[in-house]
Every structure is written in structure tokens, then in C-alpha cells.
Design a protein around this nucleic acid. Sequence first.
DNA 1: ATTAGATTAAAACGCATGTTTTAAATGGAC
DNA 2: GTCCATTTAAAACATGCGTTTTAATCTAAT
Lengths: 210, 210
Amino acid sequence: MTKAVTTQDKLLNAAEALFAEQGFEQTSLRQITTEANVNLASVNYHFGSKKALIQAVMARYLDVFMPKLQTELMALAERNQFNTREVFDCFRGPLAELRGVHEQGSTLFLSLLGFAYAEIQGHLRRYIMEQFGEVIALLLDTLHQANPKLSPADMFWRLHFVLGATVFAQVSGPALREIAAADFGEDVAADQVVERLIPFIAGGVDACSE
Amino acid sequence: MTKAVTTQDKLLNAAEALFAEQGFEQTSLRQITTEANVNLASVNYHFGSKKALIQAVMARYLDVFMPKLQTELMALAERNQFNTREVFDCFRGPLAELRGVHEQGSTLFLSLLGFAYAEIQGHLRRYIMEQFGEVIALLLDTLHQANPKLSPADMFWRLHFVLGATVFAQVSGPALREIAAADFGEDVAADQVVERLIPFIAGGVDACSE
DNA sequence: ATTAGATTAAAACGCATGTTTTAAATGGAC
DNA sequence: GTCCATTTAAAACATGCGTTTTAATCTAAT
């Protein structure tokens, strides 16, 4: 017997695919329920609202990713010396773990995170901060340890530049991969974008202030 | 006599302020026309559609910025030797020129560009590429000259990371400046964000590939 | 087999959007 | 002053959205 796929799972799967591709606001419940072969009203029945569905989609990834990232960062912090690059390398493992949620888990997750940040969606930012603010504070702390030359204010801004580069790279990833393939012949898989990104952001964070 | 302010100008001014603050899709024509004290239908009468209004708002800036950037880049390219940082410094002048369009021209422009990039708004990306693709190609070329070690593909990706960081910094700039002011006591003007950004992106682009 | 509770189906609601239509007002040219 | 093209005003239109409601259906325990 194959495991029964519940309506809620069908909804979550269809929703995450559409959200990652189009963003949250651009994706309608009618699109989602049609794609999931499920009745329109079932979203509100099972989740209560569209907002709650969005948070449920994010939670599947965040609940795996954030604890893993936290342990990685804490393990690194126990060492005496480490550099910025090694801090960002802490993301590789937790991202890879997301394959357990979905085959393309890391790409989907980063795209979703991108839209969560890009769209004005205040509720999602608030949700993430409330649930995982501790991990984010730890990240800032670890980064500061890796590069004590930078003032906390500088580090604050650079971390957000990092977020911007990451997030937009994912959101516009599909379109960019097309252009890159056309212009340079080389096909770039989604994972390779992260490989290209990490040197960039480590270099940016470590740049001298002026 | 003070110069007559036409309906079209009232619309462009109200629209750009709201667009820069909320994004294009989040801003309704009713908001714009109310703010401009003109009739709702005048948008479609004078511009034809919301899309056309958006493009008209962007054109006021792009038509000033892009040619200036092009001459700056061409002047730099005539030198034998220059580095990545000097390429990005080419943006300072053209951005400052935007004060001619509006007092806070550079900030408004970057915010608009951010939303244009963030939202799925295919038509805006297409518009920019069709109108100013030549300048963007020149920028890629100049960057590659400044840092020949990087393959064209690497440079292509890094330029988009740069765009992401820039755009994100502008779009979430107001919120971030608030947080920064609360956490670090220092009030950061919008222009200073760009000053913080340029070392970051120059460092990112120049980072070694692996 | 019946019944009570959980789920799904179908339709309608209320609202906001961009656009279009129709009528009124405006402002020069003759 | 009259007339005509341009512009503004007000209303309605068509569409899509998230949500709610009401009815039908399924499921499992009695």
C-alpha cells in the first residue's frame, strides 16, 4: 500500500511549487487548489487563511534548517579562530539537509525566503523573527567574531547586503540561468549558483571599509 | 507666474512617490489619482494604462541616468588600467545628476529599480533591456576588463549579486535604517547606505573564485 | 444499518482592482 | 459669441481575489 496523500499535503506541495516560482501574492488560492486537484474552500478549512498556508509552507523548511544551522554555528564558535568564509560555509550542510523535505529543497527554500523578504509581507518577516530570532542573533555574533575589525553597525549592513544578494539571486535565478546559458553556453544548475554566491558574499563582508 | 503643473506631471509625481515607497503592484491607480488630486480615468486617458504610467515614471530617470553612465564608463575604458572599485565609482556621478529630476532623485531611482527587479513585472525588465541593453553590455565589458581573472560567466553572476544587494538595500532601506538607528544609535541617511554598499560590492566582485 | 462527526463540493458574498463609457466642462480659433 | 477639439468628471463594467456559507458526501463507531 502506498501512503495516503492527505489534502493538506497536496495543498502544501502545490503551494510551495507555485510560491517558489511566482511569489506569494502573485499566487492565488484558485491556482493552488486547481494544481492540487482539491476544492477551493479546503485551504480555509484546513489552514484557516492564505497567510496561515504560507507560514505552514515555510515552516516545513525552517523547522529543519534553523536548528541545523544553529548547531553548525555553535560548533564553529567553539574554535578559537575562524574566518568569514567558514561562517558562510556553515550554510551548506543545513541547505543540503533540505533534500529530505523535497528533492530540490535548498533551491525552493531560498526562493521562498527571497519572496518572503522581497514582498512587503510583514507577517512573514515577523513570523521568522519571532520563531528564529535567536539563531539570527547567533549568526551576527559569529560573523563579528570572524571579523572583529568591522563595527557592529558595518556588520549589520553587510549582512543585509548578503541577504539581498542571496535572495535576489534565487528569485531571479530561473530567468538568469536562461540568459547565462544563452550567453555563455554553460548550463548552471541551481546548486551551482550557491557555489558562485559564497565566495562573493565572503569577499564582500571582508572588504575593507573604505 | 508659476509654471502650470499639468495633470500628467501631477500623476508622474504622485506615482513615483508611491511606487518608490510601496512598489508598483501594491500601488493602485485610485491611490495615485487621489494623491494627485485628479480624476481616476485620467491615467488611462493620458498614459493608456498602468503599465505605461510605470514606464513613464522610470523613463524620467533612465533617460538621464543611462547616457551619463555610458559616457562615464567609456571615459574610464579609455584608460589602460583601472580596478573594479573605479568601475562602480562611475555610478556616483550619474546618480547625483538625478537630483535634477527630484531632490531625492538617486534614492527614489534606486528604490524604483529595486521594485522593478523584485516584482515579476516582466514588462519593465524587458523595457529596460530593450532601451538600455547596450549600456549594460558595456558595463559587463568594463568590469571584465577591470578584473580579467574572472570568466565572463563568473562576472555575469557577480554583477547580478551586486544588483541584488543594491536593490535589496534600497527596498528595505527605510525599515533597516530604523533598526540600525535603534540598535546602534547612529542615524544613517539614505546616501550613506550607498557609501556602505560600494566597498561591499567591490570586495565581492574581486573575491577569488574559490 | 444507523448515526454523528469530519471532510469535500459548489455556490455565493463582499471587496478591490484596472479599464471603459458617457456626459459635462473647459479653452482657444474664427 | 460660437463652435470644435481637448480635457476632466462621474459612473458603471468586468474580472479576480480571499473568504464564507450551505449542502452533499464520506468515514468510522455504535
